[in-house]
Design a protein around this nucleic acid. Sequence first.
DNA 1: CGTACACTGAACCATATGGTTCAGTTACAA
DNA 2: TTGTAACTGAACCATATGGTTCAGTGTACG
Lengths: 125, 125
Amino acid sequence: MVQLQQARLDASFAALSDVTRRGILERLGQKDASITELADRFRMTLTGMKKHVSVLEHAGLVTTEKVGRVRTCRLGLRRLEQEAAWIESYRQLWSARFDELDRIVEGLVQEKTTHDRNTTVSPTS
Amino acid sequence: MVQLQQARLDASFAALSDVTRRGILERLGQKDASITELADRFRMTLTGMKKHVSVLEHAGLVTTEKVGRVRTCRLGLRRLEQEAAWIESYRQLWSARFDELDRIVEGLVQEKTTHDRNTTVSPTS
DNA sequence: CGTACACTGAACCATATGGTTCAGTTACAA
DNA sequence: TTGTAACTGAACCATATGGTTCAGTGTACG
């Protein structure tokens, strides 16, 4: 199950790692579109666009339905919950880590101050 | 500049699309580590781990410093702000899109109800 | 000094990715 | 029925990815 989640994260982060696919998602956020419309907009062949859509579909970010000749693409049911959660937990980890470093540095400064106070009283010039 | 941001997103989403690299980030969130320590933990060669670290470093997610023989890896300065922002804006887009669909569906239901009311008064059996 | 350790670069390998062209198949339209 | 438009699968291509081995280089330590 953890493996499944990891595979899911693998697939969707990989899907998001391409500027064209992020563009497709934004475009589909406005309105559903056919393969042809998407291919025109992103200036590539139908076959190329089909591949991108397949990647997004495999990641669960897009669903498609073919009626007649035309396949209509729309946003999938997934809202990137797990991806947002991973990033959020990373951000918290990051903050905690750097807060800790801050405390350590502060501790060192404190220590040094104390040390200085002990050693700088009445300097014997 | 937009291109630069897109390249940044490309690089960091790609960096996050590997389960080992996400593991490395989580590990470094606990404590800094050398290449050897990371390689041991993730059961791969030093060379292989070096490559992963390089990818993370290139994405700005990790910084390294070599002192003596050992290269110490720590979390980079980037907190995935842009990545979190992209995902968040996508989630809002997604919500807006589906709210709109809800309204459309509701509209249709409303229409149908009205129609039913108009047509089902005193059914002539 | 000699040895072992930590890393690094080059080369290699299999597979994946992002794109293309070409040759279909199916469906709408004149 | 004869196009033609929309898609699709197969094959191909260049490059990237995730890993390895091998052969170093530089550093610590006894």
